[in-house]
């Protein structure tokens, strides 16, 4: 018989770093299955929507796809909220490992993914602060700054005395050029893509914490319909997919930073004390929000405490290992 064809769909364009990792994964799966699995990709949202892809995959619109539990407005409250519990996590690999421990320790997290087989957990580069003409060296420098931030950081910036603004990323360049905003919280990968060096002078690596979440999934029913050896290929592919994404994101961050330096931006390295103060403020804001999670079946405070203990107990340079005892 011919190969089994599985459809893969994402809302990102084929040139996005996410999609580069997806392409690596497709190649791996086809090779590792000796051609018995074939993946047919659909890019740029041509098959799956950006927000409802979890639901669409459950109903077989695509076999496998990019999922965004952090953008879903219902049904994934815990998965979405736990991304705020990662202050202090040092690398993308650490973020992914912490998520996996959390998912193991708190079954309600996994229940939000019923009907789906997670094939990849994704972390991200930590955003820094890009500013037009006022350098940011410590959390105190945020006071009075008008910053474009993603929705989830509005509370943090406000708590630090800043003036958070939400606007589409595409409007950041002109808004910064005209002085409508003083800066933006953004991961270094975006530096080059948005040409921000032309309108901003400072990049500060005061990092906003960021968490991991399941980001690629397959319909559980479709997964079960495959013979065991092909199921194994897909399960093994998780490490490949995560590794490739982490590598691609790392390269994108490096490129962005090099672009910023090359275009004369002043790169500011903040002190560990400043970062700690910032993380503490971040955790304060998070703790307030975490209490609202209890009605979704798990204690937000317990999840936050678990993640923070795990991160604090992991020595620098060592991989994150889940504790044996249950919380």
């Amino acid at each position: 018989d011919g190969p089994i064809v599985l459809t893969y769909a994402t809302s990102y364009s084929p040139t996005h770093p996410f999609s580069r990792a997806d392409t690596d994964w497709i190649r791996y799966v086809e090779t590792a299955s000796h051609g018995r699995l074939k993946i047919k990709p659909y890019w740029s949202g041509s098959l799956l929507s950006a927000d409802q892809s979890m639901l669409e995959i459950r109903h077989g619109v695509a076999d496998i796809g990019l999922i965004t539990p952090i953008y879903v407005l219902g049904g994934a409250h815990l998965t979405s909220a736990q991304t705020a519990f990662y202050a202090g996590a040092r690398s993308i690999d650490d973020q992914v490992a912490v998520y996996k421990c959390l998912a193991q320790a708190f079954p309600p997290l996994q229940r939000e993914l019923d009907g789906l087989r997670v094939l990849m957990v994704q972390g991200g580069n930590l955003p820094g602060v890009i500013t037009r003409d006022r350098p940011v060296r410590s959390p105190a420098d945020i006071r009075g700054l008008r910053l474009r931030v993603p929705e989830e950081n509005v509370g943090l910036v406000r708590a630090l005395g800043g003036d958070p603004v939400s606007m589409p990323m595409s409007e950041v360049y002109p808004a910064m050029a005209k002085g409508v905003i003083d800066g933006v919280l953004v991961a270094p990968d975006a530096l080059g893509a948005l040409h921000l060096a032309e309108v901003a002078h400072y990049y500060s690596d005061l990092h906003t914490p960021r968490g991991a979440y399941p980001a690629r999934a397959m319909s559980e029913a479709r997964f079960r319909s495959l013979p065991p050896d092909l199921q194994k290929v897909l399960l093994d592919s998780e490490a490949v997919w995560e590794g490739s994404l982490s590598k691609n994101l790392g390269a994108a961050a490096k490129k962005g930073l090099a672009y910023g330096k090359g275009h004369g931006m002043t790169m500011i390295a903040v002190s560990p004390e400043a970062q700690q103060a910032f993380d503490a403020a971040y955790i304060d804001v998070t703790r307030r929000d975490a209490s609202r999670l209890d009605r979704y079946g798990a204690s937000g405070a317990a999840m936050l405490a678990y993640a923070q203990t795990l991160i604090a107990n992991t020595p620098a340079g060592q991989p994150v290992a889940c504790p044996k005892e249950q919380p």
Binding site: Q52, L55, L73, G74, G75, A76, H77, E151, V154, Y296
Partner: peptide, 20 residues
């Protein structure tokens, strides 16, 4: 079908928490 499936998930907007 979708609305029925999402119903128990308590779908709410991000900032104001308006029910959808």
């Amino acid at each position: 079908w979708i609305a029925a499936e999402i119903w128990p998930g308590d779908e709410r907007t991000q900032l104001l928490g308006l029910p959808i």
